[in-house]
Structure formats: C-alpha cells, structure tokens
C-alpha cells in the first residue's frame, strides 16, 4: 500500500501503451468493423435461415447436389491448377535465380496479376476462341482441326485462365523463397561432388518445403475463390459452377443473404481445411533457417 503512486500513464507506457500506440486504433477499428464484424455477422446469419431452423441452410446445402457439388467442382479446378503452377514455378525459379536481369521477366509476369482476371478473360475469349490466334496456329500445323479444339466456355477455359493469372503469382512467391536460400549451401554440396539433381533433392527441396507449402496455400485459396473467369470463360451453369457462383446467386439473384452467408462460410471452411492440412504436413519436414550458419 505504501508504494509511491506511479501515474497510470507511466505504468501504461512501461508496457508499451502510450500516445504512439494509440495510432494503431483507427486502422484496427476500421478492420474490426469491416472485416471481423461482417464475418461474425455472416456466421450468425447463416444459422438464421428463412425456414427458422438452426441448421436449415447447411442442411439444404448438403442435401442438394446442385449446391454441394460446387465444392468438388471447385476443388477439381483449384487443386490441379495450383499443383501445376507450383510444378512449373519451381524449375523456372531455379533458372531465373541465376539470371542477372530478372526485372524485365518479372515485369512481364506482373502484367496478368495487375490487369486482373476480367481483362485476361476478355483477351482469352479472343485468343483461345474458335477463330483466335492460338487455335489458328494449332490448326495450321495440320495436326488438329478446329472442331477438335475447344478451349473456352468449358473447364479448360477456366483452367487456362487460372494458369495465366496464377502462375506469375506462384512463380514470384517461389522465386523469393528460392533466392532466400544461401548459395553457399549449394556450393558446399557441389564441392562434395553432388550433381544438380542431387543438390536439388537433398539441399534445396528440404529447405524449400516450408515456403512451397505457404505458396501452395496462398495460390490454392486464390484459385478456390475463382469467380469472374468461371462465369466468363467457363460453363457457369454446369461444369464450372464453382462455389462462389452459388454464393453470388443466393445473395444477388435469390436475395437470400442467410443462405449466401452459409455458402460463404462453407467456402471459407473448405479453404481452411486444406490450408491447415497442408501446414500440418509441412511440420513433418525440416523447418529452420535457410541462410548459412556463420553470420
């Protein structure tokens, strides 16, 4: 009781709370109001369906193949595309890491990310369309005829669009992980006589697995929420009726916000399950510094 009264402000600032710390508040409040609250509200709303039961929306979703099939449809697009992006990105990143002038290449690859899926979709409708340059080039080789190749308004249209916008994203992420590995480790292995394939298998791969797992997660989550290209380049009524289309239709065509929130929550849950599974699998591998031991 006899302790001299330290002013509250001094005690708070000793814990790191002072006027400067308060600067974080406006941004935090905005994000709580616009991100956390809507998520919580959406979750709450999804348990308040039109029919009054608690689980009505979820019951309806998992009873109707037109709705629950969208989970598989979207997975069937997102998983192969993400894996393909990753398998392409790793070898390319390993070559590009040796390049001295990476900037031109990275600038070209940033284009589809910047321009966005809508513009890429419009371009692809031209380019991969039945009269487009790509199909024209293929048929001029004489190996195909036009009726054999159909690259838009089906699964492959969406697949290609996810490849074109997703590969640069996956590649640039992978490149940043690959260049973060100390080249000294590879040189040490090379000194001991390991060939390129062995160096990749025994040195780089274990160091890269954590980064590749993160890259997979980020790319997968993007691909799983594909929306504009599934509508514009796919067959939104059938083979590419992805889960975001179902959520959109519930919200803006049937005006059933409760159902739309439920679908959005299911979409988030599927993404979360895959991400958690991948990150859990990552723990089975080495996790540690990718830089040299000597500082």
């Amino acid at each position: 009781m006899a302790t001299p009264a330290i002013p509250l402000s001094t005690r708070l600032s000793a814990r790191g709370l002072d006027g400067v710390t308060l600067l974080v508040l406006p941004a935090a409040i905005v994000l709580i109001a616009l991100f956390v609250y809507p998520f919580g509200y959406g979750l709450w709303l999804s348990f308040r369906p039109k029919d009054g039961t608690l689980l009505g929306n979820y019951g309806k979703f998992f009873a109707d193949p037109f709705l629950y099939d969208t989970i598989y449809t979207t997975l069937a697009l997102a998983v192969p595309v993400t894996l393909m992006n990753l398998f392409l990105a790793v070898p390319v990143a390993f070559r590009v890491r040796l390049m001295r002038h990476q900037r031109l290449l990275t600038t070209i690859l940033v284009l589809p990310i910047t321009l966005g899926t809508v513009l890429v979709a419009e371009g692809m409708l031209n380019y991969f369309g039945p009269q487009g340059w790509f199909v024209r080039a293929l048929t001029s080789t004489g190996l195909f005829n036009v009726s054999q190749i159909k690259l838009v308004h089906n699964y492959w249209g969406v697949f290609l669009s996810l490849l074109i916008t997703g590969f640069p994203f996956t590649f640039l992420l992978t490149l940043s992980y690959v260049t973060g590995i100390d080249p000294g480790l590879e040189q040490a292995a090379a000194t001991l006589g390991a060939r390129a394939a062995e160096r990749f298998r025994h040195i780089f791969l274990p160091l890269l697995v954590p980064g590749l797992a993160i890259t997979f997660c980020l790319s997968f989550v993007q691909a799983y929420s594909v929306f504009p290209s599934a509508v514009l380049l796919g067959a939104p009524a059938g083979p590419t009726r992805v889960i975001s289309i179902a959520a959109y239709q519930a919200a803006f065509e049937e005006y059933d916000y409760s159902m739309a929130s439920a679908i959005a929550m299911i979409m988030g849950a599927v993404q979360l399950v895959v991400v958690v599974a991948v990150l859990a699998a990552r723990n089975l591998f080495y996790r540690g510094p990718a830089a040299g031991a000597k500082g």
């Binding site: 974080v24 809507p38 998520f39 980020l218 989550v221 929130s261 959005a264 993404q271």
Partner: peptide, 28 residues
C-alpha cells in the same frame, strides 16, 4: 505492446482470405 500479435493477425487475414469469401458477408 500486449495484443500486438493479435493485431498483426488482424492485419494479415484480409490479405490472405480471398475477397470473394469475405466479400459476401461484407456486402450483406
């Protein structure tokens, strides 16, 4: 300061969660 990690998560999540997923509840 206490709670900094939680705030960092709050600032990271909107970048990691795809816009469609949080956009529908937000639009609602």
């Amino acid at each position: 300061f206490p709670g900094k990690k939680a705030l960092m998560l709050l600032f990271l999540l909107p970048l990691l969660v795809p816009p469609v997923t949080f956009g529908i509840p937000l639009a609602t």
